[in-house]
């Protein structure tokens, strides 16, 4: 491939107002996913710095570079961190982490940090899996659901489509919303089916009145992804049966949370507006791990 369209750029940030030297407690959290790794450092419960890196063949390398990315040029070193925890698919590859935590609690904690304490439903949409988490009013997980194995590869396959169709991953979502009417989704069962069907949408309109525009092709694909996410969310225990308001305080985390083509479609199906955060929603797992550390 000549140019890569499907990858989110790596990022890093550190606060200019917080001095870590004055902090009583410095905690680090790292979320080693299947495809990317995020590290976050909290000083007395405030987000001090973070980094997000792409995984290669070695989870260990990704973990180390995410942590050093988060420490960056702040002068902070590993010995200054009082507590640390790791979560995610590759969590055991962070030897510096004091604790290993499960993803569900980390995302729940992280989402409440990023989106506010009113969050009741968290939908984490990562590269491979989707987790829907329902929380009590107080700080406890009530129920959670994960995707079936067959439906794996959520974000990863959006990346593949972006690479194949030469559309930047940062734009596919917005473009897919620029359609007059929502086209029928491609297969909502399996990503291999969806891929073959999407590529088959081009060309001569043998079975439809007019050829699909490119934006409609994106819409058709992203709708199928959103539909699969909805399938996971729908299996959650409702908080108050028979009341649509249950979904209202909803937060999206993970890489696909940055794709409006997915989030807007889920919102309109559930008739809710998701909460917003000033930080990157990919960080929820890492921040949650840092809080729980």
């Amino acid at each position: 491939m000549t140019k890569e369209y499907g990858k989110w750029p790596e990022s890093g940030w550190s606060s200019e107002t917080i001095d870590w030297k004055k902090a009583k407690r410095v905690a680090a959290g790292i979320d080693i996913g299947t495809t990317s790794t995020q590290a976050a450092i909290l000083c007395d419960g405030e987000l001090f710095s973070y980094a997000s890196v792409r995984n290669g063949a070695s989870f260990k390398k990704a973990a180390a570079s995410a942590l050093s990315g988060a420490m960056g040029s702040t002068g902070l070193s590993q010995k200054d961190i009082h507590a640390s925890a790791a979560t995610g698919f590759g969590r055991k590859h962070a030897p510096f982490a004091g604790t290993l935590l499960d993803e569900v609690h980390c995302h729940a904690k992280g989402a409440r940090f990023l989106f506010g304490p009113e969050v009741r439903t968290v939908v984490d949409m990562g590269a491979q899996s989707v987790k829907a988490i329902r929380l009590y009013d107080w700080d406890r997980v009530r129920d959670f659901m994960m995707n079936d194995k067959c439906a794996t590869g959520f974000g990863r396959n959006v990346e593949i489509i972006c690479d194949l169709l030469d559309v930047p991953i940062t734009e596919i979502g917005a473009k897919s919303l620029e359609v007059d009417s929502e086209p029928e989704p491609v297969s909502t069962t399996c990503f291999t089916f969806a891929l073959t069907e999407t590529l088959g949408l081009f060309g001569e309109p043998e079975f439809r009145a007019a050829p699909l525009t490119l934006n409609e092709v994106y819409a058709s694909y992203l709708f199928s992804v959103a539909w699969r996410v909805l399938g996971v969310v729908g299996k959650l225990q409702p908080l108050d049966v028979g009341d649509i308001k249950v979904y209202k305080e909803l937060a999206f985390t993970g890489g696909l949370a940055k794709n409006p083509g997915i989030t807007k479609r889920i919102e309109s199906e559930l008739q809710v507006t998701a909460l917003e955060s000033k930080y990157d929603p990919m960080l929820a797992g890492a921040i949650g791990a840092a809080i729980l550390a």
Binding site: T34, A57, F59, F89, G90, K92, H93, Q128, K149, C150, A151, T152, G153, R156, C190, F191, T192
Partner: peptide, 20 residues
């Protein structure tokens, strides 16, 4: 069986420190 399963299995192998 299929690409999604194969990819998950490959990622698991990677997670268990199998050589690339």
């Amino acid at each position: 069986g299929c690409v999604p399963f194969a990819e998950l299995d490959a990622l698991s192998l990677l997670n268990h420190d199998a050589a690339p």
